[in-house]
């Protein structure tokens, strides 16, 4: 079942085209990633999906509702976590959740949600005294307190330390396991690779690729690289004549073989037949980083 359908979305701010032409569909129960360099139009896209902005063209449908015509009904069923959205300094964790729970007809139990998000001992802590990771978890909690069917999470882990980031990822997987469909905006490749079932890569306001993270990687950069130090002199021709091998380079005492398919097996078989041991053997595969660079021509931001 399609939960979100975006068709030829177009949005401009004056002369600046933020979103040129974006289409995608999100299936129920998946974690859908929206990936792209800064200023690519990711946030504007999800803001149109959440009904916070009015598109200049195209159609958006969320849970069968038009965000423009039915914003109230949509807000009951869609939880949104905005980029850089804070709370009043003196507001306490428990108060924030109870307040936001009061906005919904069938809210989650705030106390239970606080425990589930690991904020149980912070119930009475003021917002300004929370760590970055705790603020982020509270923010996720507020997006979930209305028992939404869809959660839109924008730049969820930006600014978090690696441990807090991993904790947040575990949390998102946990939320998905309860049946919530999640749209995740990110510019962290590792995050997309770890969490997302499918990813739309957006660049300059257009979708340049839409696939699973593994699919994106293999489609864009199918090459693998093998590095090793041979235990005995090695004639390059032994390797270059293999059909799986596309190139052989030397880098100091190391041999670097590039190839496709089952290249690792082919190379190691040839080496074994010639009684050469491959020391310090490493296989380098393309990552989503490489795919991202290939697709957008940018290095992913860090």
């Amino acid at each position: 079942m399609r939960v979100i359908e975006v068709t030829n979305l177009h949005k401009r701010y004056g002369d600046l085209v933020a979103v040129d032409d974006v289409s995608f569909a999100v299936e129920a129960g998946e974690i859908f990633g929206i990936l792209g360099p800064n200023g690519a139009g990711k946030t504007t896209t999800v803001e149109c999906v959440a009904g916070l902005r009015v598109p200049d063209g195209g159609a958006v449908s969320v849970l069968g509702l038009d965000p423009r015509r039915d914003p109230r009904r949509l807000r009951e069923r869609v939880g949104v976590q905005l980029q850089e959205s804070q709370l009043p300094d003196r507001l306490r964790v428990g108060e924030a959740l109870e307040l936001y729970a009061s906005f919904y007809r069938e809210p989650a139990d705030p106390a239970e949600l606080i425990d589930r998000l690991g904020l149980g001992d912070k119930r009475k802590t003021a917002y300004k005294n929370l760590s970055g990771g705790q603020k982020q978890r509270l923010s996720v909690a507020l997006a979930l307190v209305g028992n939404p069917e869809v959660a839109i999470l924008d730049e969820l882990t930006t600014g978090l330390d690696p441990q807090a980031r991993r904790d947040t990822w575990a949390l998102i997987e946990q939320v998905r396991d309860t049946g919530v469909t999640i749209v995740l905006v990110t510019h962290f490749m590792e995050e997309a690779e770890r969490l997302c079932d499918r990813v739309a890569v957006i660049d300059r306001g257009r979708v340049v690729a839409l696939d699973s993270p593994a699919g994106l990687v293999s489609r864009v950069a199918p090459e693998q690289r093998i590095r090793f130090r041979p235990s005995a002199p090695l004639d390059d021709r032994l390797l270059t004549e293999l059909p799986e091998v596309t190139a052989v380079h030397r880098s100091g005492s190391q041999v670097v073989v590039t190839g496709t398919g089952d290249v690792l097996h082919a190379v190691t078989s040839v080496l074994a037949r010639n009684q050469i041991v491959a020391a310090e053997l490493r296989l380098e595969q393309s990552t989503l980083d490489d795919a991202f660079v290939e697709l957008t021509g940018h290095r992913p931001a860090e």
């Binding site: 959440a50 009043p88 906005f103």
Partner: peptide, 17 residues
């Protein structure tokens, strides 16, 4: 102005309130 700058108002507009 603080509520607007910190996104408190915007966050509220994503809820039924």
């Amino acid at each position: 102005a603080t509520y607007r700058e910190r996104g408190v108002l915007r966050r509220l507009s994503t809820t039924p309130a």
